[in-house]
Amino acid sequence: MTAPAIEAVDLYKTFGHSTALDGVSFSVAPGTVFGMIGPNGAGKTTTMRILLDIIRPSSGRARVLDTDARNAGPALRRRIGYLPGDLILQGRISGRRLLTQYVDISGPVRPGRIDELAERLRVDLDRPVRKLSKGNKQKLGIIQAFMHEPALLVLDEPTSGLDPLMRQEFLAMVKESKAAGQCVFLSSHVISEIQQAADEVAILRNGRIVRVATVEDLRGTAVRHLRLRVAGTGAGDLRSRLQTLPGLDNLKITDDDGRGAAASATLAGAIAPILAALAVLPLTDLVLEEPDLEESVLSLYTAPNSEEQS
């Protein structure tokens, strides 16, 4: 059993009177992609900064790549690629010069690697950094995080500012990193990205982890939308057949001009019993949508936390 790539135990962090992290614990297995989602101010950035020893927890501890993150020193950070949440790059120097400067304080970078990544992300390295758009600066940030092929990537809102095409390219890079044995810890408030990239997801709210689940688990509890259409059955008949089915909610039946009926509903839980029940109906159309993670996660964002007093 190998040690986890990241192990956070009971991290607390207060800034003055406000609590940024209120006991965050999680563990990330090596070679996996771990996503952290939550609204702004939930504590995602604070968690990541603690892993990099940029800020120190008020209490609790974090181990990164089997080393205590606190005062770990340069040897550990050489094995981490970090992209800060609000990346600021400025100066007259070209992107290439800037990256070379980071190479000097980073892990070893394979020759040609920077150009490879730049070509992939379509960024012109010869332009002065300050003239680059937000998206292109973000690409430089991604390059400096990936260039030394670190064992662990810590990426705070990595796709912010990227266009949809580049987002897909970035997600492909994450997948390749995982295939190469690297571990990726990324945060986002765009759930669809996490859903595409991550093996496991932690949902953070008000400095607490509300839930850690695999994407599959999340999908399992997620709500699916079901639409169907039947021929030769009236609306009333359809309603009586569907009403009793387990997990079916928000049922709406419309009469289809006497030729049949249409129904829409939300479905939570197992699919098989529903399908078995539907199989006997004279279906002309059936749509079972992919579960919407966003919907299920949003319910966690907004669900009142029972432990929380106002």
Partner: peptide, 17 residues
């Protein structure tokens, strides 16, 4: 203040250095 120190410190350097 400009946010760049954070990125520098995330690399393989010590604060003392």
């Amino acid at each position: 203040e400009s946010g760049q120190l954070e990125l520098t410190l995330a690399h393989s350097v010590t604060r003392t250095q």
